[in-house]
Nucleic acid binder design. Structure first.
Length: 275
DNA sequence: AGCCAGGGTCTGC
DNA sequence: GCAGACCATGGC
């Protein structure tokens, strides 16, 4: 893929396995909106952007090359060869079916704290409500960076908050888990920088020291927050798929890319339910 | 009204 | 180590 600068826009061409709408709305990120004009609006690392996808190009509006390289290129995981990975994991016939129907899903490389916090909120919850809670979290405690845009609050910024302070979020029993994560990160008991360098088994253990972080939330944090594409979150939908199609576990062809296979299967299975 | 949602904790065996 | 109650909230 190539990018050029035009005025204040970045235009991406030679698109390879990248469907922006699918990436943003397949259940891995919770803060994006589709505007009436078809543009996707969101905030990452305190930067708001509008993205338009056309036939053969994707336009990042009103940004800079620096932000494109620092933020949007890693966020959409543009340096990874998904073409090749999809071909490999599609040796399995069901993944092949899912990947044909939803070609262009990539794993978004989100901020690790945002991913951790978001997936703590996700437990025993549904996607629209998760988005609502996170939206209220950002509005209440993030920085206002535009008319209706707020950054995701850092854990440093949330340092002195109590469970009662989170009441307006209507996060229910998850509030105490968020506070526990905030405290463990601020005290240094757990370090996201350290987790990033750990082998995955150790990283899992470390994340699960936080109350409200079990296997599934840890796996989501590793996959979406740390770019560990071998992480394999199993939620109710993936559990269904495993029972229906893969009683003996994932096929060999997914090895090393389990998280990407998971994303295709999750979205495929979840959408099939509504037909 | 009851069930479900990108689950986890706690208790009791 | 595993099953089952319980956890808040909102949509259907």
């Amino acid at each position: 893929m190539k990018h050029i600068i035009k005025n204040k826009d970045i235009i991406l061409s030679d698109i390879s396995c990248l469907d922006v709408e699918l990436c943003l709305f397949c259940g891995q990120a919770f803060r994006w909106q589709k505007k009436e004009n078809g543009a996707f609006h969101g905030v990452v690392k305190g930067r708001a952007v509008d993205i338009i996808q056309k036939e053969n190009e994707i336009i990042f509006l009103n940004t800079s090359e620096k932000d494109f390289l620092d933020i949007w290129l890693p966020y959409f995981d543009l340096e990874r060869n998904y073409e090749e990975i999809c071909k490999k994991i599609s040796e399995d016939k069901y993944i092949n079916e899912a990947a044909k129907e939803y070609y262009g899903i990539r794993i978004l490389r989100q901020d690790s704290w945002e991913a951790l916090c978001s997936f703590i909120i996700s437990q025993n919850n549904n996607i629209p409500r998760i988005s609502g809670i996170i939206g209220r979290l950002c509005e209440a405690f993030g920085d206002r960076i535009g008319e209706n845009d707020y950054s995701f609050p850092t854990y440093e910024k949330m340092k002195d908050l109590t469970v009662e302070d989170l009441a307006p979020l209507r996060a229910g029993f998850r509030s105490k888990y968020i506070i526990d994560a905030v405290q463990k990160l601020n005290s240094g008991e757990i370090s996201l920088n350290e987790i990033e360098k750990m082998p995955i088994e150790k990283a899992r253990e470390e994340l699960m020291k936080i109350k409200g972080v079990g296997a599934k939330v840890a796996e989501c944090t590793l996959l979406y927050g740390f770019g560990r594409i071998e992480a394999f979150p199993v939620d109710v939908w993936v559990k269904r798929i495993m029972a229906e199609l893969y009683e003996d576990g994932l096929p060999e062809c997914t090895k090393g890319n389990e998280g990407i296979a998971q994303q295709y299967l999750f979205h495929w299975r979840r959408n099939k339910e509504n037909k």
